[in-house]
């Protein structure tokens, strides 16, 4: 997919592109009011300050805990439910269209309901992350279930496979790669949900850091916090893509 080229050259190009970007940022900041844009150096200095004072570690720990709880619940429930739908055709036919509708519904719209029903605290925020992450996992697992060839189940049954063997040898290996595509999407959506929950429900973690910096007009801190969130996003997406690719190769064989 990418240009075939030695890796060293590629990293040099990336380094160069980052350096040019930093230079342009610095230049732009010099010509803009510091009330709108903080310079690259000021932003990095602020991130360093956050790091040294421990503010950043504390915020990230709190955010990641929230993210991990919401995402893992979403993955466990989503994959198990998806597998059940893969096995029980009637249930899948009954619920498929509703799952598609909920998958396309912007879950942010439910935040005000969650706020007024569950108030502040950890649980409503974890629920927001869960809602953002759950439907991509479920939707993609069901997609995998739908493309599961009926002959595979037929053959398994002809050989008198036990229910456990059908799950172990047919259902799980066939739907897992699809589920992992869902997990990758869930990571991205869950992150959006995490920040939204930290903004609109009880303020905490990296979302609070962004929010407070904005309210205090502490521009370098605002840019610094957003930079940290971006790096966090890139790192989490890279992990998600790695896991997905590891299993996508195996799906490719079956196509």
């Amino acid at each position: 997919m990418r240009w075939p080229e030695p890796t060293v050259q590629r990293y040099v190009a990336y380094g160069l592109s980052l350096a040019i970007g930093a230079g342009l940022w610095q230049l732009a900041a010099a010509h803009t009011s510091p009330a709108f844009l903080s310079s690259f150096t000021a932003t990095i200095a602020k991130v360093w300050e956050f790091l040294v004072t421990g503010v950043l570690i504390e915020a990230l720990a709190s955010s990641l805990l929230l993210f991990a709880v919401g995402l893992s619940c979403a993955i466990i429930v989503g994959v198990l439910f998806g597998l059940l739908l893969a096995r029980v055709r009637l249930l899948r036919v009954a619920l498929e269209s509703y799952i598609t509708i909920l998958y396309a519904t912007p879950m942010v719209a439910l935040i005000p309901f969650i706020l007024s029903m569950m108030g502040f605290g950890f649980a409503p925020k974890a629920l927001v992350v869960f809602l953002f992450a759950f439907f991509p996992v479920l939707y993609n697992t069901v997609e995998g279930a739908r493309s599961l060839r009926p002959e595979l189940l037929e053959v398994a049954r002809s050989f008198r496979s036990s229910e456990a063997a059908i799950w172990r040898d047919v259902l799980v290996p066939y739907t897992l790669p699809f589920a992992l595509t869902g997990v990758r999407q869930a990571v991205a959506r869950g992150l959006v949900g995490m920040i939204a929950a930290e903004f609109f429900l009880s303020s905490s973690g990296i979302g609070q850091l962004i929010m407070r910096s904005g309210q205090d007009f502490d521009i370098p801190a605002l840019y610094g916090a957003i930079l940290v969130v971006t790096i966090l996003g890139v790192a989490l997406m890279a992990v998600g893509r790695m896991v997905e690719n590891r299993f996508a190769a195996w799906r490719g064989l079956e196509r």
């Binding site: 920040i195 939204a196 957003i226 971006t230 996003g233 890139v234």
Partner: peptide, 16 residues
């Protein structure tokens, strides 16, 4: 990088 950035994070920046 910007694709991976959660879109909620730029809300304060956009309002600024």
């Amino acid at each position: 990088g910007l694709f991976a950035m959660p879109l909620t994070a730029i809300l304060p920046l956009a309002s600024l």
